[in-house]
Write a protein that binds this DNA or RNA. Structure first.
Lengths: 252, 252
DNA sequence: CGGTGTCTTGAATACCATCAAGTCTTGTGG
DNA sequence: CCACAAGACTTGATGGTATTCAAGACACCG
């Protein structure tokens, strides 16, 4: 496996920093910063944004034990949040799509408690935690928005626990695909009939997210293709039979 | 398996309700309500407490889709928070010990998002969510306490995801035992050398928490006993070799 | 003292990991 | 643009871990 390159050292400088990029992107639809009008890409607002950063694929954005006073929110590209085990194996806790905050822990604390690695090239904005915090006290709606984000995150964690504890490989993979498709649909990033979308995940990403090995993921995906449920080509995925995939995902 | 009895229907009335029980218990040591002085068991405070409830073992305290105005906090006894799958299998998300809030989701929202079932007879207190919420706005320290609880919960969820996704049966079980022992130690509920504590869990609880079957849990526990790492008798557990158990839990 | 629920143990089986070899894709430098 | 190398993917063979099934021992309770 390729070792990811660590960008979190201040000196590395391979992350390009640009100020005041302000195009509206698909991720803005579901973005907390957009909802709270604290982003420079939004029309108005007392910006608590600090900067915009772009990094390439397979780079580490932050470590578990880093101390950050800013909350990064993904504007474009895919990333993942993971923990490493002592034997070197990895468990992906969640995939981060455009509009997602990198670890909502960072709304309240300095430590992300997981490390974040890009899957594709990623652009993200940094928002000052103290600025966000002041807004939360000034405005109960902001605090409610934080609570909502927090509940969604917990809810996804709980679902993942149930998947890993009690479901078989094909169910886990079908649920992962459907979950990602749903989140991409909310962002308007799914098009066509049958629905298709960019799918940059490698087998090892799917494996580390579902608690399987890349080899076994390959076999399961081959089965789904053979049964005409999905089609994968050139880093994009089409769900040919949504109901069939949902049947594998849900029922037992 | 025994079907648990559902107490969440308002009419059932098998839960005994007593007002103003105010003895200091082991769970008070780590209890949020005690820290915030909102509990009648604490010396002073503007109580936001509503009532005290006692229920027997294997009873459902609340459902996933219940709408609750109050946050229950366990005063005595063990409970667990779980989700059910469509095939009837169950995944336990966490064990609740004295001092633990039943689903911290209820600090901000009305839905617990998991169902809560008692393991032993349990006494809990109900605290009004609106009262807690007012305190959080009045007092930044209260909000920080909420954030801390929330981070701990997320941290435990993440650890469980890593356990279920990437660890083997003996590791999961050793980690469960050590995790429970640590939490009980914080509450002063572990005594003796070698350390021993009340351990009311049945095999099916351990199985549903670790994503295994009761049969296999039995085999793993037999191994731990045979190797002199633990001793179990009459619903109590002694850890005879903490270092050895930690070695199984951590390393690979 | 049956009855129910719990625990233990063994045998057979299912699922997934590991290992290995080969093919395909992607990126890079000449 | 091509050649090469490294990474990614596929497929089959084999083995280990956990499940399922089953039978019997044990504890607890009315």
């Amino acid at each position: 496996m390729v070792q990811p390159i660590d960008l979190s050292d201040a000196a590395s400088g391979t992350g390009r920093v640009r100020q005041f990029v302000s195009r509206i992107l698909p991720g803005c639809r579901t973005c907390l910063a957009s909802e709270l009008a604290v982003c420079a890409a939004a029309k108005a607002g007392a910006y608590v944004q600090q900067s915009v950063v772009t990094v390439s694929a397979r780079r580490i954005v932050c470590h578990e034990q880093d101390s950050l006073d800013a909350l990064p929110i993904i504007c474009g590209g895919w990333a993942c949040c993971a923990v490493m085990l002592s034997d070197g194996s990895r468990q992906i806790l969640s995939f981060l799509l455009p509009g997602d905050p990198v670890s909502t822990s960072l709304l309240f604390a300095a430590k992300p408690n997981c490390f974040v690695e890009t899957v594709t090239p990623v652009t993200y904005r940094l928002f000052s935690r103290s600025g966000m915090r002041e807004r939360a006290f000034a405005n109960p709606e902001t605090l409610d928005a934080f609570a909502r984000i927090r509940l969604e995150e917990q809810s996804r964690s709980d679902a993942l626990i149930a998947d890993l504890g009690r479901r078989k490989a094909d169910e886990r993979i079908a649920r992962l695909i459907l979950g990602l498709m749903q989140r991409l649909q909310q962002r308007g990033m799914v098009a066509g009939d049958p629905p298709a979308f960019a799918f940059p995940l490698r087998l090892h990403h799917i494996a580390d997210a579902t608690g399987l090995t890349p080899v076994h993921v390959s076999k399961v995906l081959s089965g789904l293709r053979r049964d005409g449920l999905i089609r994968m080509s050139r880093r994009s995925l089409a769900v040919l039979d949504t109901a069939g995939l949902a049947a594998i995902a849900h029922l037992r």
